[in-house]
């Protein structure tokens, strides 16, 4: 029976002709847009994850502690919530690092009357401590230490980046939603046209006592097929664009965002897009069902 209904749906799809093609293309467009934003967002998300792993807070100390004192301080800080690792950097080590950074101009450091750099603690937060809220709480705890003079580093800029990513995702959803509504309406129109074309068949089906789901299922299936075809086309477009554009922008992305390789959508994302397309088409087909007979 299902084979027969599927055959009827294919027959209907052929009947819908250009309108069906328009519906498929609109679904392709909406899902390709959604997929492209998804692709962009997932790569940005990868960048944010990498940034989070590299986040460090620096606690500058009021005065350089003695060895035992420094070790006790490190132990105390290590037990704080949100702290992953702690490294003590003494004044001399800080100056050595400055010399390394200055390179050939390292001699400048030797002209200083005394070492102006403070001793510090380099803190690597845990994943929880690297979020905006976690980092804020950690900074509050570290500021409360009597040894703390100032705290450097932070996660605000990274969070702004993450916020940008969320905004992009919202924008994608907005654009996707508008295109999806347009696609649903087009599928509805295509299916309604088919509905008129197969009015006689539906009348005969009802007169002979065919169950209502048998009368209407081909319309739903037809919509779902349009959706699935649209989704498959959208994925093909995304793959083509990724293959074409990806290698060209990868160096730039690596330079600016620190993401070594761009990644394509994961299999579950691709399946989600295909399901979304099928659902869009199905909704269109369902809406075109019209009123059942009294």
């Amino acid at each position: 029976m299902f084979g027969f209904l599927l055959g009827e749906a294919l027959r209907d799809l052929r009947r819908a002709g250009r309108v069906a093609i328009s519906a498929i293309l609109l679904i392709t467009l909406s899902l390709a847009a959604l997929g492209a934003f998804w692709l962009l967002s997932s790569n940005m998300s990868e960048a944010v994850t990498q940034f989070r792993e590299r986040v460090k807070l620096v606690v500058y100390l009021r005065r350089e502690p003695g060895t035992a004192e420094a070790s006790a301080l490190v132990d105390r800080v290590r037990t704080m919530p949100g702290v992953g690792a702690v490294r003590y950097v003494g004044k001399a080590e800080a100056l050595g690092t400055l010399r390394q950074v200055l390179g050939k101009d390292a001699a400048v450091a030797d002209t200083l009357p005394q070492n102006p750099l403070p001793a510090s603690l380099e803190i690597t937060p845990t994943a929880e401590g690297a979020t905006l809220e976690g980092a804020r709480a950690l900074v509050t705890r570290l500021t409360a230490l009597p040894e703390t003079d100032e705290i450097g580093g932070g996660v605000e800029w990274m969070e702004r980046f993450a916020q940008g990513q969320r905004l992009l995702w919202l924008f994608a959803l907005g654009v996707g939603a508008v295109l999806a509504v347009a696609a649903i309406l087009t599928v509805t129109t295509a299916t309604t046209l088919v509905l008129h074309a197969r009015r006689d068949e539906m009348e005969i089906m009802r007169l002979v006592g065919a169950p209502e789901h048998v009368v209407r299922l081909p319309l739903l299936l037809q919509g779902m097929m349009q959706g699935l075809l649209g989704a498959m086309l959208a994925i093909w477009v995304l793959v083509a664009c990724y293959a074409l554009i990806g290698p060209r922008i990868e160096p730039l992305v690596s330079e600016t965002l620190g993401v070594a390789r761009l990644t394509f959508l994961r299999p579950h994302n691709v399946i989600s897009l295909m399901l979304a397309g099928t659902l869009l088409g199905g909704v269109g087909g369902w809406l075109a069902r019209g009123r059942p007979e009294a």
């Binding site: 006689d200 068949e201 009348e203 005969i204 009802r206 007169l207 002979v208 006592g209 065919a210 169950p211 209502e212 059942p292 007979e293």
Partner: peptide
């Protein structure tokens, strides 16, 4: 509606215009 469909399965109907597809 379901019972109507069941009833119609026991009835054959022929019209003046044959209503062939």
């Amino acid at each position: 509606r379901v019972e109507v469909a069941a009833l119609r399965r026991s009835i054959g109907i022929v019209f003046q215009d044959s209503k062939l597809l």
